[in-house]
Design a protein around this nucleic acid. Sequence first.
DNA 1: TTGTAAGCGTTATCAC
DNA 2: GTGATAACGCTTACAA
Lengths: 348, 348
Amino acid sequence: MKSRVTISDVAKAAGVSNSAVSYALNGKAGVSEQTRDKVLSVASRMGWRPNRAAKALSDASTRTVGLVLTYDTAVLSIESYTMELIAGLTAEFEKAGYSLLVRSSSSRRHELAVLREWVAAGAVDAVLLMNVELGDPRIELFREHPRMPVLLLCDESLSGGLPALSDNGRAATHLVVDYCHGLGHRRIARVAGSEQMGHTFIRDNAFREESAAFGMDYLCLHADYSPESGDRCTRRLLSLPQPPSAIVYDSDVMALAALKAAASMGVRVPDDLSIISWDDSFMCRMSSPGVTALNRDVVARGRKAAGMLIDLAEGRTVQPHAEVADDLIVRGSSAPVGDECVGVEVAV
Amino acid sequence: MKSRVTISDVAKAAGVSNSAVSYALNGKAGVSEQTRDKVLSVASRMGWRPNRAAKALSDASTRTVGLVLTYDTAVLSIESYTMELIAGLTAEFEKAGYSLLVRSSSSRRHELAVLREWVAAGAVDAVLLMNVELGDPRIELFREHPRMPVLLLCDESLSGGLPALSDNGRAATHLVVDYCHGLGHRRIARVAGSEQMGHTFIRDNAFREESAAFGMDYLCLHADYSPESGDRCTRRLLSLPQPPSAIVYDSDVMALAALKAAASMGVRVPDDLSIISWDDSFMCRMSSPGVTALNRDVVARGRKAAGMLIDLAEGRTVQPHAEVADDLIVRGSSAPVGDECVGVEVAV
DNA sequence: TTGTAAGCGTTATCAC
DNA sequence: GTGATAACGCTTACAA
């Protein structure tokens, strides 16, 4: 395995010592300009590149950040969240020469094992945790290992004191509820995601508080992000004696299922029912009517997370952040409540 | 940085030498059962885990496979291909304790630089190349560096002799053309992706040959996967003196755009026009009518690729493979050509 | 069966 | 300014 060019090879070729080469290549003081130039030219001529493993062993840094993906293969091909996040992360990492180390886990227990191994093996310089749950055992793991920097993608209130990048659920909730209120809706509902998820918890509370503040009726059903559950919950809500005039869905998939469910029940969208999706996607654009959706810049969030992770990996402290702002993209699925003619007149 | 447990720590605690510990922990001969047991129990009590960097330096293996993502952020949130591939890859890697190292590149040149660095730094044990283009410079790079195992996701005929996992474009093309022919279509068209892409090249040829073999008229337009280009090409095709009765789209996004374009031109789908998408997705299921689509099991392909990459990384040779079969999911967007009443009668 | 020691490629601490 | 040399943690001849 002697094919790669090492520092010793360069040193020999340049007729200097290993340390001189090291200093020269790292731009450190300790060598004359003359030898530095010679070393640099020889090194580049020989095609020297630092060996990753040796560097990692020597200075205990890998320039790598770890991410464990927990797949629900059914959700995988539908949700673009993870891919956009990875795009943002790696785009920002690229500037600093960091890599993303990805593993997948079939269960929370297995994920914990992977994380523990990373900590013990020094395989990564920092770890990103997504899909934080209430009482998430990963939080305790990293509190026990303060030497391994970690960033949680969740609300600051859920991170147990660990650095967090908030998904901004409260601000977004205000945006959505305020929008519904502005359209005249006074009876709204929400089809939420899994109750264990930290972001669901945050949104649950935020929706309850916001709707109360606006004096609106609010009802929440918990589903599982599947189109079937979106369909089921929509039917339940629309069958109530006093059905809501607007429903917010925690995912675009459920919102699209709702669009179909409403149609099959003879409920007109947006005349009788406004539908709003928490996540925007190409599907929301292409459906008829288009679905009003919260536009979360997940790529930007990934970039932000990457910056924070690099800071943490290099020993700098970071403040919990929530500065990536969301906005609402209004499409045909939402409209003023009540008599649609009045609504149209007002809008025009 | 002395917080982690090393082999020396274990050796000291167990009262044996470093090498005894190493042998014991790696299940190698050279220690008595007695000392092996003692070492194992001491090691697990102390929570010893092998240090990644040290192992990598010592045996020049990282148990890591590299993947460079080249993002088109517009496509990113729409296409699930990459995410599904990563899911399959990491799921299979997990069994063997391999990790996926991900970087992103903004340009082909930058990707080449990343790959070169990986080769020189020994950062990964193998590399996966996707989106192979005609005359792809990456092929030459890896032919120059035969020590770095590589797997190309493309047709065997494009890989320049390097190991390849075919995306099976020919077989799938036959499936699609045969299906169209069976429905009575004799004038078909295709809205293809970028002409530089290897898979486009393969499909171009395969479609030409298959349609000729069936004695069908075939016309192909090259687009760029964007909804706008899908719309534009569809309008052009439908404005021909003798428009096709079936159009195959290289992506679901373009197929969905076509659905809208046809509707706005008063062309009925599937009565006047059958639409078939090369990629299946949730959108194809949810649209009205649903879009007939080629169902490529990308996750399975990822698993297969992972297995081959591990073989390559560990020095075993692999055969070019194309065994992941595709199938066609028929939905409402395709139907027998001509008088739709006849078609319905036949179908019922 | 066991322990000693060299080597992997860097970085960093020393003498000189 | 320069060049030996130790250290990082592990594997593996080789010697005992």
